[in-house]
Amino acid sequence: MSIKIKALSKSPWVFHVSAASCNNCDIEILDCFTPRFDVERFGVQLIGSVRHADALVVTGVINKKTIPLVKKVYEQASKPCLVIAVGTCSCSQHMFRFGYNVIEPLDKILPVSVYIPGCPPKPEAIILGIVKALGTLKKK
């Protein structure tokens, strides 16, 4: 394992892409940064600019309006960049799959490395998912 990958797995900076979610998943993501869970212990930081991102955390149903936006955000990130789907919405479109504007699931658009189902997933589940995502990084 090269030192770059090792460093990446020790300090993943996540960028939060909220693509038409109902906001519960977003709140659960923010919960991970509160004193109770404190993911900064593992070097995870929530950052403001996509250019600094090592992982995109995508929440919500990807629909006709948000597909180009999500694609654009992914293109703007500096690679290597993981994509983590948080919430059943972004994993499998949830109950909105028959919606008039819901075309494709997220993994048809971006290379998703980890799915974290749940409506919304618990912070513990999100932390576990991030750990697994970093595991896939090490295997590559």
Binding site: K4, I5, A7, K10, S11, G43, D54, S78, K79, P80
Partner: peptide, 14 residues
């Protein structure tokens, strides 16, 4: 942590 952050940034795309 800060050392790792800097090393990681060296390996990213510019």
């Amino acid at each position: 942590q800060n050392f790792v952050d800097i090393i990681k940034l060296f390996g990213k795309e510019i």
